[in-house]
Every structure is written in structure tokens, then in C-alpha cells.
């Protein structure tokens, strides 16, 4: 059973699992939101490279974010969050608790260094909480180890590439839309016909970040990471990404920024760890991320079992209806 559970939601190598022999190292992103300047170069570079249509010219009134969310025509989205002192203190505190708890996501696998925990704690005690801050974070598809979207796709349009990433083949997708509710991160979306002019590419088809598959196959960096001026978006072998994320969060903790925390690095989370990992400065939901994502398929066996029982019940009901005295 253990093996099968891992296959559905635990730590595993998704690339070999999906039949690639001898694939290259799994690729991924590390988005360090602590150095993001919200310039949106990543958004624009992505739209340029992938020739994505403009999708709305409205002021949303949510700080400088007029993009809103990831979607069929937004594969990178920069979130802007304005916070005042008490909220920052709360974030620092909740992060501090994580440090105390020794969460696996908070430090490298080989265990915490006790001095570090001590340091972080004192730094919090002494640290000055600013009275205002403006968080910025560039969101993207997580390229999950266990990708809900890919699991449920009935046509095989979604597939796992040799780089361990999850990509839609737009010429195969029939727009059934099943991947949309199946993504625990609300990433993938169908490009709806009625929002765009006829002739817009990929209408009616599900769209999401490809991790620039067309660039990776040419040994190029994804457009968004290439454009990011501050290296807030780092691209590389996923293992290296996770390692540098862990290193960075340690540094921040050592400097008293206990609000810093990692997202997606835990391979025992509900999606087997993500291919895009993040360093956040507050709870995930503050950024519009689910706090404890789980791939829907994790419970698929149980779901099918229930459906099987129900099917039996249905038969029993019918038999019951016809049974007995004939009339």
C-alpha cells in the first residue's frame, strides 16, 4: 500500500514514474519573495514569450496588483500585500513558532543547528518590527510532484516532461475543463471563448505555465527567470533550488526574520513537494496560496471504493424493487 500511496501523493520521482528512462535532473524554480521588487518583468516576459493575449484593462483596487490571479492568460502573477505593524508581528510570531516546532520545511534534512534556533529566538526578542511593509511575490504553477491537473486529464493532453514539469499539449486538449477544479493551487484554467477575439490562439483549451518547455529543450532559462532583475526567481535543478531556499531561510532566521518560511519544499506535504518552491514572509494564504494543499487523487482509491459500494447498493435497490410477489 505504501508504494501506491507514494504514487498518489508521497515523495517520489515523478519523471521516472511516468516512464522517462534516465531523465535529466528535475528542474524547478525557487522564488525568493524577500528580494522581489514587484517590477512584474516576469509577468511581461512570460506574456511576450508565450504570446498570451491581453486579458483585462481594469483597475482592481488591490494595491498595485491589477492582474488578480493566475489563469489561462496569466501564467505569472505578482501579488502585492500591504501590511501594518501588528500583522507583521503576527507573521513573525507564527514563523517563530514554526522554528520552535522544528518543521521539516524550515531547515535542511540533516537537522537544525541548535545555535541557529537560539539565534533566531533572540533576534525576534530584540528585533524591531517595522510599522508597515509591502509584500510582493510572483506566483506561478507549482509543477507538483503529484499534479492534480495531470492526474485527472482524460485525454493525456497534460503530460510530465523529461524535466519533471507538467505541460499541456494544446493540440490534444479538448477543453473538458477537468484539470481546472483538480488543481489544489487554482492555477490552470481554460481560455474561454467569450473573453477573446476569434482567432486568439488556444481558445477553449486549458492553459498554464509550461516552465518554458520550449526553452528548456534548447538549454535556455525560462523567460520569467531570465527577465527577473533581482534573481527573486531562480531557476535550476530542483534539488539545488531547495537547498538554496533552505540556506536562505536559515540566513533570514539568523537575522531575526522569523517570518520567513518555505513553501513547497516539504516532500511529505499533500502533493509530494512542488517543483516551484517559495520563500514567503507570511502565511501562505496571505499570498492566496492554500495552506495545506493536497492532490485530490490522494484519496481516489477511497473514492472509488465508496462509489463501488454505492453501485452495489444501487443494484440491491433494483433487485429489491423487483423482488417479491409478481403482480
Amino acid at each position: 500500500m505504501g508504494y501506491w500511496t507514494n504514487q498518489l501523493s508521497g515523495p517520489t520521482n515523478p519523471t521516472t514514474d511516468s516512464g522517462w528512462d534516465d531523465p535529466p535532473a528535475r528542474k524547478g524554480f525557487f522564488t525568493d519573495t524577500s528580494i522581489c521588487i514587484g517590477c512584474k518583468a516576469c509577468e511581461v516576459a512570460c506574456k511576450e514569450w508565450n504570446a498570451i493575449p491581453e486579458d483585462g484593462l481594469d483597475l482592481l483596487g488591490s494595491s498595485y496588483d491589477n492582474t488578480g490571479s493566475l489563469g489561462a492568460s496569466t501564467l505569472r502573477q505578482v501579488a502585492f500585500i500591504e501590511q501594518s505593524g501588528d500583522r507583521i508581528a503576527q507573521a513573525r510570531e507564527s514563523g517563530g513558532r514554526l522554528v520552535d516546532l522544528g518543521m521539516p520545511a524550515m531547515r535542511p534534512a540533516d537537522g537544525p543547528s541548535p545555535e541557529l534556533v537560539g539565534q533566531a529566538a533572540t533576534a525576534v526578542a530584540e528585533g524591531e518590527v517595522p510599522d508597515f511593509r509591502w509584500l510582493m511575490s510572483s506566483d506561478v504553477c507549482k509543477h507538483c510532484t503529484h499534479a492534480g491537473c495531470l492526474d485527472v486529464c482524460p485525454t493525456g493532453a497534460l503530460f510530465r516532461t523529461e524535466f519533471g514539469t507538467v505541460v499541456v499539449q494544446p493540440d490534444v486538449c479538448n477543453g473538458c475543463g477537468y484539470c481546472v477544479p483538480a488543481c489544489p493551487f487554482g492555477v490552470i484554467e481554460r481560455r474561454e471563448q467569450d473573453h477573446f477575439e476569434a482567432g486568439t490562439p488556444n481558445l477553449g483549451v486549458a492553459q498554464k505555465c509550461t516552465l518554458c518547455y520550449d526553452r528548456l529543450t534548447d538549454d535556455q532559462t525560462p523567460a520569467c527567470a531570465q527577465a527577473c532583475p533581482t534573481t527573486s526567481i531562480k531557476f535550476g535543478d530542483l534539488d539545488d533550488m531547495v537547498a538554496s531556499a533552505e540556506e536562505r531561510v536559515e540566513t533570514l532566521h539568523a537575522n531575526g526574520y522569523t517570518e520567513a518560511r518555505l513553501y513547497g519544499t516539504d516532500r511529505h506535504d499533500g502533493v509530494g513537494g512542488t517543483g516551484s518552491v517559495f520563500l514567503l514572509l507570511d502565511e501562505p494564504e496571505v499570498y492566496g496560496l492554500p495552506p495545506d494543499p493536497q492532490v485530490p487523487t490522494a484519496e481516489l482509491p477511497a473514492m472509488f471504493r465508496q462509489a463501488g459500494l454505492a453501485a452495489v447498493a444501487m443494484l440491491v435497490m433494483a433487485v429489491g424493487a423487483f423482488a417479491g410477489r409478481r403482480r
Partner: peptide, 25 residues
Amino acid sequence: LTEHHTAGGMSRWLPYLSELQPEFF
């Protein structure tokens, strides 16, 4: 704003920049 350039000749005609800051505020 980062999203626009000066009097707009190089940004308000471009969809990818205009949608990032669509309205005067």
C-alpha cells in the same frame, strides 16, 4: 510607475504594460 514609461508613448500602446496599470489613479 514601473509599469509605464513617462508620457506613455512606449507603454500605453502596449497591451502587456497597459493591463498592469490600466487606469490613472
